[in-house]
């Protein structure tokens, strides 16, 4: 089991499983080349790196730079870009719609969709929005994304 922490990413293959815990407004992006069985998972926090106000220089935190790095790493591990498909989860608003004027979860989702579009990577499944956290397990063997939430049924997409 390869643990991907918040604002990080990792690539796996064979019978390995990637896991990332407690996606709230963050988005988990699972990329998969089913021919070469190369899987990648990124846990992003914010949409665009150019909007960064932070002095911290972690480019894995943003959807645009994070996804770009993940694709590069997967190609390095033997994936073919034209064969990569995506599954995404997260983008919730943890304390409900009234709690914040700007819905960062929704903005994250929009950014992820746009960035994947630019790379021509089709999103074949998604489980986003709402106001609950999701833990994601991504199995490199078959590209199954397993989504676990508190007090909800586990989803396989």
């Amino acid at each position: 089991m390869v643990i991907v922490s918040i604002a990080d990413l990792a690539v796996a293959s064979g019978d390995e499983t990637l896991v990332t815990y407690a996606l709230g407004s963050c988005v988990g992006i699972c990329l998969y080349d089913s021919v070469n069985r190369v899987a990648g998972l990124a846990h992003i926090m914010l949409p665009w790196s150019k909007e960064a106000v932070s002095t911290e220089n972690n480019m894995r935190r943003y959807a645009d730079t994070g996804i770009t790095e993940l694709i590069t790493k997967m190609i390095d591990s033997g994936a073919k870009k034209a064969q990569i498909t995506a599954k995404i989860a997260g983008g919730a608003q943890m304390f409900g719609a009234a709690s914040s004027a700007f819905n960062i979860g929704e903005r994250n989702i929009k950014a992820v969709i746009k960035i994947l579009e630019t790379y021509r990577i089709p999103i074949i499944a998604s489980e986003t929005g709402g106001s609950y956290a999701r833990t994601v397990y991504f199995h490199a063997q078959n590209g199954t994304m397993e989504i676990r939430s508190a007090n909800r049924d586990t989803l396989m997409i």
Partner: peptide, 14 residues
């Protein structure tokens, strides 16, 4: 909200 603490603390982090 009652949920995973990682997602709750991500709210101030974000």
């Amino acid at each position: 909200t009652t949920d995973m603490v990682g997602a709750i603390l991500a709210v101030p982090a974000v």
